[in-house]
């Protein structure tokens, strides 16, 4: 696939995923609504980072810098949940 086609394919995938997010919001899955919405959002963010931001073709140092902050995201979620889940 040429570069342009890849970009268009990724863009279409993002649109489809947005549609799914919208559709799922009409279903009542209880707690799973949040899980599904966040999972789709993460997938979309990964597509953007990998293709539109060219992470796919980058070396190890750039990957390290891209993945490193995700650990901190996990940290802030863990720390805050240690409060809210046990209050």
């Amino acid at each position: 696939m040429t570069a342009q086609r890849t970009y268009i394919a990724v863009w279409l995938a993002l649109l489809v995923l947005t549609g799914i997010t919208w559709g799922v919001s009409y279903l009542d899955l209880g707690l799973w609504n949040v899980v599904v919405a966040l999972a789709i959002a993460s997938l979309k963010a990964s597509l953007v980072a990998l293709y539109f931001m060219h992470l796919r073709s980058e070396g190890r140092l750039v990957w390290a810098f891209a993945l490193f902050p995700l650990g901190f995201l996990a940290l802030i979620i863990f720390g805050t949940l240690s409060d809210t889940l046990f209050r």
Binding site: G79, S82, D83, L85, F86, R87
Partner: peptide
């Protein structure tokens, strides 16, 4: 602040 005791112990 009223944060959970578990969080207090961890932090």
């Amino acid at each position: 602040s009223g944060m959970s005791h578990v969080a207090g112990v961890i932090f």
